[in-house]
C-alpha cells in the first residue's frame, strides 16, 4: 500500500512535468494531429464507393461510414504512441543512462509523457471530430453516457497495450542496431487488423478470424463501433476481457525484455 502511494506521488510529479512539456509543444502537436488524417481519406473513399453501389455496402450507409471512420480517427488519436522511437534513440545514443540511475523505472516517465499529450490533445480531438459528423447528413455519435464511460475504459486498455507493444519493439534496440523499422510494421498490422482501412464487418470471415487472435480489433474497431452506437454490450465485455489478458501478457514480456536487455546495454557515450 505504501509502495503504491509512493509510486503515485512520483507519477504525479513526473506527469506534471511532462504535461508542462507537452503544453510547450502544443503547436507542433496540432500539426502532428492534422497529419494523421488516414481515417478521413478512407471515409471519403468508402462513402464514394457506397454512393456508386446505390447507397450502401454490407449494411454500411454513407452516414454509418462517416460515424465509423470518425470513430477510428478519434480512437487512433487517443492511441498514438511514439515510445519505440524514444527508446531507440535513448538506447543507441546512451541517453537512457541518466534515467537508469534514478530509483524509478523509466517506463513511468514515458507513460506520463503520453498521458500528458492526451490531455493537451483532447480538446482539439473533440473540435475536429465535429466536422465530419456535421458535414455528412445522418452521421453522429451515440448519446448514451454509459457507452462513453465504457469507451474510456476500452481506450485506456487499448492505449496500454499499444504502449506495451511499442515499448517491447523499442527494447529490441538492445539487440539490434535500430528498432524503428519494426515499429512501422507494427503500425501496419495494427491498422489493417484493427479496422483503420475498413470496418472489420466488411472483411472476409477468414481474415476476421485471424484478426480476432490479436488485440487490434478490440483496440480500434470495437471503440469506433461503440462511438457510432453500433456495439452490443456483450461485445464490449468480451473486448475488455481480451484486452486485460493481452495487457498482462505484454506487461510480462516487457519486464522480461527489460531485464535481459539491461545486461546488454552499452551505455554508449555516457
Amino acid at each position: 500500500m505504501r509502495a503504491a502511494a509512493s509510486l503515485g506521488r512520483k507519477f504525479r510529479a513526473i506527469f506534471s512535468a511532462q504535461l508542462a512539456n507537452m503544453v510547450a509543444y502544443r503547436a507542433e502537436l496540432i500539426i502532428w494531429m492534422l497529419s494523421g488524417t488516414l481515417s478521413f481519406i478512407m471515409m471519403a473513399i468508402w462513402i464514394s464507393q457506397a454512393r456508386a453501389a446505390g447507397g450502401e455496402i454490407g449494411g454500411f450507409t454513407e452516414a454509418r461510414f462517416a460515424s465509423y471512420f470518425t470513430g477510428t480517427w478519434v480512437t487512433g488519436q487517443l492511441l498514438v504512441v511514439w515510445v519505440a522511437w524514444e527508446l531507440d534513440v535513448q538506447i543507441r545514443l546512451g541517453n537512457l543512462s541518466p534515467k537508469l540511475l534514478r530509483p524509478l523505472d523509466p517506463l513511468w516517465e514515458h507513460l506520463s509523457n503520453h498521458l500528458g499529450d492526451r490531455l493537451v490533445r483532447a480538446p482539439f480531438i473533440a473540435l475536429l471530430a465535429c466536422l465530419p459528423l456535421l458535414l455528412v447528413p445522418g452521421a453522429g455519435f451515440t448519446t448514451d453516457p454509459r457507452v462513453y464511460a465504457a469507451y474510456l475504459l476500452v481506450v485506456a486498455l487499448g492505449l496500454l497495450i499499444r504502449f506495451l507493444i511499442e515499448y517491447c519493439i523499442g527494447l529490441l534496440c538492445f539487440w539490434t542496431e535500430s528498432a524503428t523499422s519494426f515499429s512501422e510494421i507494427s503500425w501496419l498490422v495494427y491498422a489493417a487488423l484493427g479496422g483503420v482501412f475498413a470496418p472489420l464487418q466488411l472483411y472476409p470471415e477468414a481474415l476476421r478470424r485471424v484478426a480476432r487472435l490479436t488485440p487490434f480489433p478490440y483496440m480500434v474497431n470495437l471503440p469506433a463501433t461503440m462511438l457510432a452506437g453500433d456495439a452490443a454490450w456483450g461485445d464490449v465485455g468480451r473486448g475488455v476481457l481480451v484486452l486485460l489478458g493481452w495487457a498482462a501478457a505484454l506487461g510480462t514480456l516487457r519486464l522480461v525484455m527489460w531485464r535481459l536487455g539491461l545486461r546488454r546495454y552499452g551505455a554508449v557515450g555516457a
Partner: peptide, 28 residues
C-alpha cells in the same frame, strides 16, 4: 550519483526547477 559532463538529466524545455521537483519526488 553519476554526473556525466557530456550528458544531461535536466528536462530541456522546462525551467531547471521542474527537474529538481521531479527528483524531489523520485528520491522521496
Amino acid at each position: 550519483t553519476l554526473v556525466m559532463g557530456q550528458k544531461q538529466q535536466l528536462l530541456w524545455d522546462l525551467p531547471a526547477l521542474d527537474s529538481f521537483l521531479v527528483n524531489q519526488a523520485i528520491y522521496e
